[in-house]
Simulated assay, not measured.
Amino acid sequence: MRIKFAGVLLTLLLSGCDQSVPVEKGFAGMGNQASAFTPVVPGRVFGFPADHGPHDGFRIEWWYVTANLKDEQGHEFGAQWTLFRSALKATPEVAGWENQVVWLGHAAVTSATVHHAAERYARGGVGQAGVSLAPFNAWIDDWRLSSQSSDADPLADVQLTARDKAFSYQLRLTSNRPLVLQGDKGFSQKSEQGQASYYYSQPFFRASGLLEIDGKPYQVSGPAWLDREWSSQPLTASQTGWDWFSLHLDSGEQVMLYRMRQKDGEPYLTGTWIDAQGQTQLLHGADIRLIPQDTTRVAGRSMPVRWSILIPGKHLDIVISALNPKAWMDLRIPYWEGPVQLSGSHGGQGYLEMTGY
């Protein structure tokens, strides 16, 4: 993801546990001032595997995976898994019930006709959720993203699992490609005022395994994408939501795009072009034309489920369409998220997330 919702936990989940928590501002609380927490500034030197783990001092972060999958008959599916970490205080974590971190998990599966989503909540410090290194393991209850590799890169081979009453998946994700720093060497700006996150991805995963929907199993495979972001105040109070795209092009290239919508004025656009060798180029608003096309009514909202994307400098002129226009995440923090198909100058597949509608 791409911006996510961990900050909203400060009000939705913990106001009953910590009455000193302030009222949030901006979409999902992400625009609330966070002066006590560590700011995101350009020039960070990333270090792995340490940056796969939690970051004390920052208010919010997430581990996020999407997979575009097909079975042996060519039926298309999507799978999504996210673990959010929200810190109530900027101090280092402590063990036990005095721990100041809350965890939230989201998981979903999508087909052309079905969409199921589920969520989990946990308090840190008591073993119910967390992220550890050596070996890498991110978990909440029995949902896990865990390394299967003794290689120097713990994300070279990982197992992804989630289960709920209507669905489950067990997927193996592998890649021998290097990680990708998004934005300007990992500094991903989200507004003209300078709000930003630290952001890296593994967009070259190959997924394979078992997906089950409503009791029916499917052997599936396809491309997958992992995002890691952390920040303290990634949005301004005037940003109402965002549209995020991750695209696997048939040419072997990958594209990430953010469209941050404002209460007034034009959206803030940014993105990253990733070539087939993993080299990146920062995309600015002037490089991108991102236009909503067809809409559909979902949960009482009008959602743009078909988009035109034009990046002239890369000869990209495509239309993306939702596999399932009804892919509404009907959770305590609702949003739209699901797989998309590509047509035009490039074929491919990807994922779209839309919030704040």
Rank of each mutant, 00 (worst) to 15 (best):
A117P: 08
A108Q: 12
Q128R: 04
G105C: 08
N99L: 13
E119F: 06
A112T: 13
T91N: 09
G105V: 03
L88S: 07
Q100W: 15
G96M: 05
E98Y: 06
A134M: 14
L104I: 14
W97D: 07
T91I: 12
A95T: 13
V131R: 05
H106V: 10
G105Q: 15
Q100M: 04
K89T: 04
E119G: 04
H106G: 01
A138Y: 00
A138H: 04
I140M: 12
W103K: 11
A87N: 05
G124N: 08
H115I: 04
K89Q: 15
W103R: 12
G105A: 14
Q100Y: 01
V114I: 13
A129M: 13
W97Q: 11
Q128M: 09
F84K: 06
S132G: 10
P92T: 06
F136G: 02
R85T: 07
A87M: 02
L88Q: 08
V102N: 04
A122G: 08
A107I: 04
L88N: 04
G125S: 08
H106W: 13
V94K: 13
H116E: 12
G130V: 03
R85M: 09
Q128Y: 01
Q100H: 15
A107F: 04
A122R: 12
E93I: 04
G124D: 02
A108P: 03
V94D: 05
E93T: 10
L88P: 02
N99Q: 02
R120L: 09
Q128K: 12
L133F: 03
T110K: 00
T113E: 07
Q128W: 01
